[in-house]
Write a protein that binds this DNA or RNA. Structure first.
Lengths: 156, 156
DNA sequence: TGGAGATAATCTACATGTAAACTAATTGCA
DNA sequence: TGCAATTAGTTTACATGTAGATTATCTCCA
Protein backbone atom coordinates (compact mmCIF):
# COMPACT_ATOMS: atom_id res chain seq x y z
CA UNK A 1 0.00 0.00 0.00
CA UNK A 2 1.43 3.34 -1.06
CA UNK A 3 1.98 5.99 1.59
CA UNK A 4 0.74 9.56 1.24
CA UNK A 5 4.32 10.63 0.78
CA UNK A 6 4.89 8.14 -1.97
CA UNK A 7 1.72 9.28 -3.69
CA UNK A 8 2.88 12.85 -3.52
CA UNK A 9 6.27 11.97 -4.92
CA UNK A 10 4.63 10.09 -7.77
CA UNK A 11 3.71 13.43 -9.23
CA UNK A 12 7.33 13.99 -10.07
CA UNK A 13 8.30 10.38 -10.45
CA UNK A 14 9.16 7.84 -7.78
CA UNK A 15 11.98 8.58 -5.36
CA UNK A 16 12.50 12.17 -6.35
CA UNK A 17 14.35 14.22 -3.78
CA UNK A 18 15.68 17.69 -3.16
CA UNK A 19 19.19 16.31 -3.63
CA UNK A 20 18.26 15.00 -7.05
CA UNK A 21 16.67 18.29 -7.99
CA UNK A 22 19.74 20.22 -6.89
CA UNK A 23 22.03 17.92 -8.85
CA UNK A 24 19.99 18.30 -12.01
CA UNK A 25 19.89 22.06 -11.53
CA UNK A 26 23.68 22.20 -11.23
CA UNK A 27 24.22 20.06 -14.29
CA UNK A 28 21.78 22.03 -16.43
CA UNK A 29 23.11 25.41 -15.33
CA UNK A 30 26.67 24.34 -15.86
CA UNK A 31 25.90 23.01 -19.35
CA UNK A 32 24.36 26.31 -20.36
CA UNK A 33 27.32 28.29 -19.07
CA UNK A 34 29.80 25.96 -20.73
CA UNK A 35 28.05 26.33 -24.07
CA UNK A 36 28.18 30.10 -23.91
CA UNK A 37 31.81 30.20 -22.90
CA UNK A 38 32.76 27.69 -25.58
CA UNK A 39 31.00 29.80 -28.17
CA UNK A 40 32.97 32.89 -27.22
CA UNK A 41 36.27 31.03 -27.13
CA UNK A 42 35.62 29.53 -30.53
CA UNK A 43 35.88 33.03 -31.96
CA UNK A 44 39.47 32.96 -30.74
CA UNK A 45 40.04 29.43 -32.04
CA UNK A 46 40.34 28.08 -28.52
CA UNK A 47 38.43 25.29 -26.85
CA UNK A 48 37.31 25.50 -23.25
CA UNK A 49 39.93 22.92 -22.24
CA UNK A 50 42.69 24.81 -23.95
CA UNK A 51 41.63 28.06 -22.34
CA UNK A 52 41.44 26.44 -18.93
CA UNK A 53 44.99 25.16 -19.19
CA UNK A 54 46.22 28.63 -20.12
CA UNK A 55 44.19 30.24 -17.36
CA UNK A 56 45.54 27.85 -14.75
CA UNK A 57 49.11 28.43 -15.86
CA UNK A 58 48.68 32.18 -15.68
CA UNK A 59 46.99 31.89 -12.30
CA UNK A 60 49.97 29.98 -11.02
CA UNK A 61 52.50 32.35 -12.53
CA UNK A 62 55.09 29.62 -12.97
CA UNK A 63 55.59 26.39 -14.93
CA UNK A 64 53.50 23.43 -13.83
CA UNK A 65 53.74 19.67 -14.44
CA UNK A 66 51.07 18.27 -16.74
CA UNK A 67 49.25 16.30 -14.09
CA UNK A 68 49.19 19.27 -11.75
CA UNK A 69 47.20 21.09 -14.39
CA UNK A 70 44.95 18.07 -14.89
CA UNK A 71 44.16 17.97 -11.19
CA UNK A 72 42.89 21.50 -11.17
CA UNK A 73 40.64 20.80 -14.10
CA UNK A 74 39.16 17.56 -12.78
CA UNK A 75 40.43 16.02 -15.94
CA UNK A 76 42.02 12.74 -16.61
CA UNK A 77 45.65 12.48 -17.66
CA UNK A 78 45.23 11.44 -21.32
CA UNK A 79 43.01 14.43 -22.00
CA UNK A 80 45.68 16.79 -20.72
CA UNK A 81 48.33 15.17 -22.86
CA UNK A 82 46.23 15.90 -25.92
CA UNK A 83 45.42 19.48 -24.95
CA UNK A 84 49.08 20.11 -24.19
CA UNK A 85 49.98 18.80 -27.62
CA UNK A 86 47.48 21.16 -29.21
CA UNK A 87 48.76 24.14 -27.27
CA UNK A 88 52.31 23.23 -28.21
CA UNK A 89 51.31 23.15 -31.87
CA UNK A 90 49.74 26.59 -31.42
CA UNK A 91 52.97 27.77 -29.77
CA UNK A 92 51.01 28.93 -26.73
CA UNK A 93 53.07 26.88 -24.28
CA UNK A 94 56.48 25.32 -23.99
CA UNK A 95 57.17 21.92 -22.48
CA UNK A 96 60.46 21.10 -20.85
CA UNK A 97 61.59 17.97 -19.12
CA UNK A 98 62.38 18.56 -15.48
CA UNK A 99 66.00 18.06 -14.47
CA UNK A 100 65.09 16.85 -10.98
CA UNK A 101 62.62 14.24 -12.09
CA UNK A 102 62.80 13.23 -15.67
CA UNK A 103 59.31 11.75 -15.62
CA UNK A 104 57.93 15.26 -15.21
CA UNK A 105 57.33 17.69 -18.05
CA UNK A 106 56.76 21.27 -17.06
CA UNK A 107 54.44 23.49 -19.03
CA UNK A 108 54.89 27.22 -19.36
CA UNK A 109 53.07 30.02 -21.16
CA UNK A 110 54.71 31.72 -24.12
CA UNK A 111 54.62 35.47 -24.67
CA UNK A 112 52.11 34.82 -27.41
CA UNK A 113 49.80 33.12 -24.89
CA UNK A 114 50.18 36.04 -22.50
CA UNK A 115 49.00 38.37 -25.24
CA UNK A 116 46.11 36.10 -26.18
CA UNK A 117 44.98 35.84 -22.57
CA UNK A 118 45.19 39.58 -22.20
CA UNK A 119 43.02 40.04 -25.28
CA UNK A 120 40.53 37.55 -23.88
CA UNK A 121 40.24 39.07 -20.41
CA UNK A 122 37.73 41.75 -21.23
CA UNK A 123 35.40 39.67 -23.44
CA UNK A 124 35.42 36.83 -20.93
CA UNK A 125 34.80 39.14 -18.02
CA UNK A 126 31.96 40.80 -19.90
CA UNK A 127 30.41 37.49 -20.81
CA UNK A 128 30.55 36.26 -17.23
CA UNK A 129 29.02 39.48 -16.03
CA UNK A 130 26.29 39.36 -18.61
CA UNK A 131 25.42 35.69 -18.09
CA UNK A 132 24.97 36.23 -14.36
CA UNK A 133 23.72 39.79 -14.51
CA UNK A 134 20.36 39.05 -12.96
CA UNK A 135 21.84 37.29 -9.92
CA UNK A 136 22.82 39.53 -7.04
CA UNK A 137 26.35 39.55 -5.70
CA UNK A 138 25.07 38.31 -2.37
CA UNK A 139 23.40 35.36 -4.06
CA UNK A 140 26.54 34.61 -6.02
CA UNK A 141 28.54 34.53 -2.80
CA UNK A 142 25.97 32.23 -1.25
CA UNK A 143 26.13 30.06 -4.35
CA UNK A 144 29.91 29.84 -4.14
CA UNK A 145 29.73 28.94 -0.47
CA UNK A 146 27.19 26.16 -0.99
CA UNK A 147 29.03 24.76 -3.99
CA UNK A 148 32.19 24.56 -1.91
CA UNK A 149 30.30 22.44 0.58
CA UNK A 150 29.00 20.29 -2.27
CA UNK A 151 32.49 19.61 -3.57
CA UNK A 152 33.89 19.02 -0.10
CA UNK A 153 31.25 16.35 0.43
CA UNK A 154 31.88 14.64 -2.88
CA UNK A 155 35.59 14.24 -2.39
CA UNK A 156 34.99 12.78 1.08
CA UNK B 1 49.37 53.29 -13.94
CA UNK B 2 47.69 50.42 -12.15
CA UNK B 3 44.84 51.19 -9.79
CA UNK B 4 44.64 49.81 -6.28
CA UNK B 5 41.78 47.66 -7.44
CA UNK B 6 43.78 46.27 -10.32
CA UNK B 7 46.67 45.52 -8.00
CA UNK B 8 44.37 43.71 -5.69
CA UNK B 9 42.86 41.71 -8.53
CA UNK B 10 46.32 40.75 -9.71
CA UNK B 11 46.55 38.42 -6.77
CA UNK B 12 44.11 36.12 -8.46
CA UNK B 13 44.87 37.14 -12.01
CA UNK B 14 43.62 40.14 -13.94
CA UNK B 15 39.90 40.70 -14.32
CA UNK B 16 38.75 38.04 -11.92
CA UNK B 17 35.23 38.52 -10.65
CA UNK B 18 32.65 36.95 -8.41
CA UNK B 19 30.70 35.99 -11.53
CA UNK B 20 33.71 34.16 -12.90
CA UNK B 21 34.29 32.41 -9.60
CA UNK B 22 30.67 31.31 -9.43
CA UNK B 23 30.76 30.00 -12.98
CA UNK B 24 33.89 27.98 -12.32
CA UNK B 25 32.38 26.64 -9.11
CA UNK B 26 29.27 25.49 -10.96
CA UNK B 27 31.25 23.81 -13.70
CA UNK B 28 33.58 22.02 -11.32
CA UNK B 29 30.80 20.86 -9.02
CA UNK B 30 28.72 19.68 -11.92
CA UNK B 31 31.63 17.74 -13.40
CA UNK B 32 32.21 15.93 -10.14
CA UNK B 33 28.54 15.01 -9.82
CA UNK B 34 28.35 13.87 -13.42
CA UNK B 35 31.35 11.62 -12.98
CA UNK B 36 29.85 9.95 -9.97
CA UNK B 37 26.49 9.43 -11.57
CA UNK B 38 28.07 8.11 -14.75
CA UNK B 39 30.07 5.64 -12.71
CA UNK B 40 26.95 4.26 -11.04
CA UNK B 41 25.03 4.05 -14.30
CA UNK B 42 27.87 2.21 -15.98
CA UNK B 43 27.21 -0.68 -13.60
CA UNK B 44 23.82 -0.93 -15.28
CA UNK B 45 25.31 -0.52 -18.76
CA UNK B 46 23.67 2.86 -19.19
CA UNK B 47 25.23 6.20 -20.03
CA UNK B 48 24.08 9.40 -18.40
CA UNK B 49 22.44 10.51 -21.65
CA UNK B 50 20.57 7.28 -22.01
CA UNK B 51 19.38 7.43 -18.44
CA UNK B 52 18.27 11.03 -18.83
CA UNK B 53 16.12 10.16 -21.82
CA UNK B 54 14.47 7.35 -19.90
CA UNK B 55 13.98 9.56 -16.85
CA UNK B 56 12.39 12.32 -18.89
CA UNK B 57 10.03 9.90 -20.58
CA UNK B 58 8.96 8.43 -17.28
CA UNK B 59 8.52 11.89 -15.80
CA UNK B 60 6.24 12.80 -18.64
CA UNK B 61 4.26 9.57 -18.42
CA UNK B 62 3.45 9.59 -22.12
CA UNK B 63 5.25 9.35 -25.47
CA UNK B 64 7.33 12.37 -26.51
CA UNK B 65 8.78 13.54 -29.81
CA UNK B 66 12.56 13.25 -30.08
CA UNK B 67 13.26 16.96 -30.09
CA UNK B 68 11.01 17.50 -27.12
CA UNK B 69 13.30 15.20 -25.18
CA UNK B 70 16.36 16.99 -26.54
CA UNK B 71 15.01 20.33 -25.33
CA UNK B 72 14.72 19.13 -21.78
CA UNK B 73 18.28 17.86 -21.84
CA UNK B 74 19.84 20.99 -23.35
CA UNK B 75 21.10 18.67 -26.01
CA UNK B 76 21.43 19.14 -29.68
CA UNK B 77 19.32 17.11 -32.10
CA UNK B 78 21.99 14.77 -33.52
CA UNK B 79 22.97 13.59 -30.07
CA UNK B 80 19.39 12.60 -29.34
CA UNK B 81 19.08 10.71 -32.58
CA UNK B 82 22.05 8.62 -31.58
CA UNK B 83 20.90 8.00 -28.02
CA UNK B 84 17.45 7.06 -29.30
CA UNK B 85 19.04 4.56 -31.67
CA UNK B 86 20.98 3.05 -28.79
CA UNK B 87 17.91 2.78 -26.58
CA UNK B 88 16.01 1.19 -29.47
CA UNK B 89 18.76 -1.38 -29.87
CA UNK B 90 18.53 -2.08 -26.13
CA UNK B 91 14.76 -2.44 -26.52
CA UNK B 92 14.22 0.17 -23.80
CA UNK B 93 12.05 2.40 -25.97
CA UNK B 94 9.80 2.17 -29.00
CA UNK B 95 9.66 4.76 -31.76
CA UNK B 96 6.51 5.31 -33.80
CA UNK B 97 5.81 7.81 -36.52
CA UNK B 98 3.04 10.21 -35.60
CA UNK B 99 -0.10 10.01 -37.71
CA UNK B 100 -0.83 13.73 -37.36
CA UNK B 101 2.60 14.94 -38.41
CA UNK B 102 4.72 12.42 -40.20
CA UNK B 103 7.90 14.37 -39.50
CA UNK B 104 7.47 13.53 -35.83
CA UNK B 105 8.61 10.29 -34.22
CA UNK B 106 7.30 9.61 -30.77
CA UNK B 107 9.36 7.79 -28.21
CA UNK B 108 7.88 5.59 -25.50
CA UNK B 109 9.27 3.46 -22.68
CA UNK B 110 9.00 -0.32 -22.89
CA UNK B 111 8.04 -2.51 -19.93
CA UNK B 112 11.67 -3.52 -19.76
CA UNK B 113 12.70 0.13 -19.31
CA UNK B 114 10.11 0.54 -16.58
CA UNK B 115 11.67 -2.35 -14.71
CA UNK B 116 15.17 -1.02 -15.23
CA UNK B 117 14.21 2.43 -13.97
CA UNK B 118 12.56 0.88 -10.97
CA UNK B 119 15.70 -1.06 -10.17
CA UNK B 120 17.73 2.12 -10.52
CA UNK B 121 15.56 4.32 -8.32
CA UNK B 122 16.99 3.29 -4.99
CA UNK B 123 20.69 3.28 -5.94
CA UNK B 124 20.32 6.65 -7.68
CA UNK B 125 18.43 8.14 -4.78
CA UNK B 126 21.04 6.83 -2.36
CA UNK B 127 23.87 8.20 -4.43
CA UNK B 128 22.28 11.64 -4.66
CA UNK B 129 21.67 11.63 -0.95
CA UNK B 130 25.20 10.56 -0.19
CA UNK B 131 26.86 13.01 -2.57
CA UNK B 132 25.01 15.92 -1.02
CA UNK B 133 24.80 14.57 2.50
CA UNK B 134 26.81 17.36 4.05
CA UNK B 135 24.67 20.13 2.57
CA UNK B 136 21.58 21.05 4.53
CA UNK B 137 18.15 20.90 2.98
CA UNK B 138 17.79 24.62 3.45
CA UNK B 139 21.01 25.24 1.55
CA UNK B 140 19.90 22.88 -1.22
CA UNK B 141 16.69 24.82 -1.60
CA UNK B 142 18.63 28.06 -1.72
CA UNK B 143 20.94 26.51 -4.28
CA UNK B 144 18.00 25.46 -6.44
CA UNK B 145 16.49 28.92 -6.22
CA UNK B 146 19.69 30.70 -7.22
CA UNK B 147 20.38 28.28 -10.05
CA UNK B 148 16.91 28.93 -11.41
CA UNK B 149 17.77 32.62 -11.54
CA UNK B 150 21.05 31.79 -13.24
CA UNK B 151 19.32 29.81 -15.98
CA UNK B 152 16.57 32.39 -16.39
CA UNK B 153 19.24 35.01 -17.01
CA UNK B 154 21.16 32.92 -19.50
CA UNK B 155 18.19 32.20 -21.73
CA UNK B 156 17.28 35.90 -21.75
C1' DT C 1 72.28 -2.52 -4.58
C1' DG C 2 68.63 -4.06 -6.66
C1' DG C 3 64.02 -5.17 -7.25
C1' DA C 4 58.93 -4.17 -6.08
C1' DG C 5 55.76 -0.78 -6.17
C1' DA C 6 54.46 3.93 -7.13
C1' DT C 7 54.21 7.89 -10.19
C1' DA C 8 54.25 11.01 -14.67
C1' DA C 9 52.96 10.83 -18.92
C1' DT C 10 51.48 8.60 -23.24
C1' DC C 11 48.95 5.51 -26.50
C1' DT C 12 44.87 3.22 -28.11
C1' DA C 13 40.11 2.52 -28.37
C1' DC C 14 35.69 4.00 -27.81
C1' DA C 15 31.55 6.83 -26.34
C1' DT C 16 29.69 11.50 -26.39
C1' DG C 17 28.89 16.31 -27.84
C1' DT C 18 28.65 19.90 -31.50
C1' DA C 19 28.37 21.89 -36.06
C1' DA C 20 26.97 21.93 -40.74
C1' DA C 21 24.66 20.12 -44.48
C1' DC C 22 20.81 17.37 -45.83
C1' DT C 23 15.99 15.05 -46.37
C1' DA C 24 11.22 14.84 -45.65
C1' DA C 25 7.11 16.85 -44.29
C1' DT C 26 4.27 20.76 -42.94
C1' DT C 27 2.63 25.52 -42.76
C1' DG C 28 1.62 30.02 -44.27
C1' DC C 29 0.42 33.14 -47.39
C1' DA C 30 0.27 35.42 -51.98
C1' DT D 1 -3.18 26.30 -55.64
C1' DG D 2 1.52 26.40 -55.15
C1' DC D 3 5.84 28.02 -53.66
C1' DA D 4 8.84 29.88 -49.83
C1' DA D 5 9.96 29.34 -45.27
C1' DT D 6 9.87 26.46 -41.25
C1' DT D 7 10.30 22.33 -38.62
C1' DA D 8 11.59 17.26 -37.25
C1' DG D 9 14.90 14.39 -37.67
C1' DT D 10 19.15 12.27 -39.79
C1' DT D 11 23.89 11.95 -41.61
C1' DT D 12 28.65 13.08 -41.64
C1' DA D 13 32.74 14.88 -39.79
C1' DC D 14 35.33 16.22 -36.11
C1' DA D 15 36.76 17.57 -31.29
C1' DT D 16 36.57 16.08 -26.50
C1' DG D 17 36.28 12.98 -22.46
C1' DT D 18 37.17 8.50 -20.20
C1' DA D 19 39.04 3.93 -19.44
C1' DG D 20 42.67 0.68 -19.64
C1' DA D 21 47.08 -0.73 -20.87
C1' DT D 22 51.93 0.72 -21.51
C1' DT D 23 56.52 3.09 -20.96
C1' DA D 24 59.88 5.47 -18.44
C1' DT D 25 61.49 6.98 -14.23
C1' DC D 26 61.81 7.28 -9.43
C1' DT D 27 61.50 5.84 -4.39
C1' DC D 28 61.75 2.83 -0.77
C1' DC D 29 63.55 -0.60 1.72
C1' DA D 30 65.23 -5.39 2.50
Amino acid sequence: MASALQNELKKRGPFDSVQQEATLAMMRSSDLLENRLARLLREYSLTLSQYNVLRILRGEGKPLPCLEVADRMIQVAPAITRVVDQLLALKLITKTQSANDRRVFEIELTASADRLLKALDKPILDLHASLLSNVSKADLKTLIRILEAVRAGIRE
